[in-house]
Design a protein around this nucleic acid. Structure first.
Lengths: 207, 207
DNA sequence: GTCTATATACGGATAGAC
DNA sequence: GTCTATCCGTATATAGAC
C-alpha cells in the first residue's frame, strides 16, 4: 500500500504485459506472436514492453512457467485408500476449473504442445511423466481390488485432460456450434456434471 | 502415365508443397509459418513455392479445404432406426482413423481454431453446426426410447471429438509421457477400444 | 522510467534473366 | 518453368534523447 508511484506503475505495467502476451501467444503461437501486437494489447509502446521483459523469448518462458505453477497447484497426491469416485471426480472438476479460469493459459499451453513442445521437453519427460505414473499405479491397484474396470490408466488420464482442455482450446468451435457468445458458469457446471457422470460410469466406478 | 515431363514435375512439386505446408502451418500457425520454411521443407526455392500456389494465404485456405473434405468424407447420415451402439462406435472409430492417418491436418485444424478460427467462421456456423444438430436430434430420440442415458448430445459429440483429436494435437505430450518414439497401429487400436468401451458404457448404451 | 529513432534481419511478393 | 535479385514492409532489439 505504501510504495512509490514508480513501483506501482511497474507492477501495473508488468501485469498488463503478461495478460496481453498470454492472449497473443495463445492465438498465434510463439513465432506468430509479435511484440508489437503484445504492446498494442497492453496499451504500451513496443520498447517499453521489451524494457520490462528483456526479450520475447523470456516473456514466453515466464508465461509457460506461470501456467505450470497453476497446474501444479492443482495436483494433490492420492493414495490407494482414497475413494476412486471422489478422487476422479475431484480430478475432473479441478481440471475443468483451470480451463474455465485460465482459458488463455490453457491455449498457450496447447499452442506450445502443438508446435512440438520445444520449450517443455524437460517438464513433460520429467515432472509430468512422474506424476502420471504415480496416479496410474494407484488406478491399477483400484482395478485389482475391483473398485473400477481394468482399463489403461494412462488413456483415462488423457481422456480427462482432453475432454476438459477442449473447452478452452476449441472455444471458437464450441461457441459457433452451440450458437452462444460465450460459455457461462451454468454451462461449465453442466459440462462438468456430464463428464463426471459419463467417465465414472464408463470406468465402472460406483459413487 | 503418358504426360510431358513438365506436367509430372508440376504434380510432384505441388504435392511436395502441400505436404510441407501442412506440416509448417500445423506447427506454427498461419502467422508463424514462413514461406521460406515451407520451401525448405519441400526442397524448393521460395519463389517456386509462390509461383505454384500464388500466395501464402491461398495455400493455407487450400489446405483447410482439403482437410474439410477429408472430414466430410467421414460423415455418414444416421437414422433413429439405427443401432446406437453401432453408430457411436463407428463414429469414434472413423474419427480416430482420421486422427491417425492425417495428424498434420488435424493439427492444422486445431491451430486454426486455437487462433479464433478466422478462416472457418462460416463453416463452423453453417455446415458443421447443422451436422451436429442433426445428430443431436437422433441422440435425443434414442434417449427417449431408453436406448441410452438422457445426456446432452452436444457435449457427447464434443467428448468424442476431443478425446480422439487429442492424439494428434497433443502427440508431443503423449509420446513424452508414455516414453515412446511414436504411437503405432496397436497403440491406436488399444486407445480406440478403450474409448469405445468407456464412452458407450458411460452413456448407458448396450451392445 | 519512457519514448523516438534506428540498426539489422527476415517476412511476402514480384521482375526479369535464362 | 525455374532461378536470382530485389522491393518494401515488418520483425526483434537497442541507443540515446528527455
Amino acid at each position: 500500500m505504501n510504495m512509490p508511484e514508480s513501483t506501482r506503475a511497474r507492477t501495473r505495467n508488468e501485469k498488463a504485459i503478461l495478460e496481453a502476451a498470454e492472449q497473443v501467444f495463445a492465438r498465434h503461437g510463439y513465432r506468430g506472436a509479435s511484440v508489437q501486437a503484445i504492446a498494442e494489447a497492453a496499451g504500451l509502446p513496443k520498447s517499453n514492453v521489451l524494457y520490462y521483459v528483456g526479450s520475447k523469448r523470456r516473456l514466453y518462458v515466464a508465461l509457460l512457467e506461470r501456467m505450470m505453477e497453476r497446474w501444479n497447484a492443482m495436483l494433490d497426491d492420492i493414495r490407494v485408500e482414497d475413494d476412486p469416485a471422489e478422487v476422479i471426480e475431484a480430478f475432473i472438476r479441478s481440471k475443468m476449473q483451470l480451463t474455465q479460469t485460465h482459458p488463455q493459459g490453457s491455449r498457450l499451453f496447447a499452442a506450445e504442445i502443438l508446435g512440438g513442445a520445444p520449450f517443455l521437453q524437460e517438464y513433460l519427460h520429467g515432472e509430468l511423466r512422474d506424476w502420471v505414473e504415480e496416479r496410474a499405479r494407484v488406478f491399477r491397484q483400484w482395478a485389482e481390488r475391483g473398485q473400477m474396470d481394468p482399463i489403461d490408466p494412462v488413456w483415462l488420464i488423457f481422456l480427462i485432460w482432453s475432454a476438459t482442455q477442449h473447452y478452452a482450446d476449441f472455444e471458437a468451435q464450441v461457441v459457433a456450434i452451440t450458437d452462444r457468445e460465450a460459455l457461462d458458469d451454468s454451462d461449465y457446471q453442466d459440462i462438468t456434471d456430464f463428464l463426471c457422470q459419463v467417465i465414472l460410469k464408463g470406468c465402472g466406478i460406483r459413487r
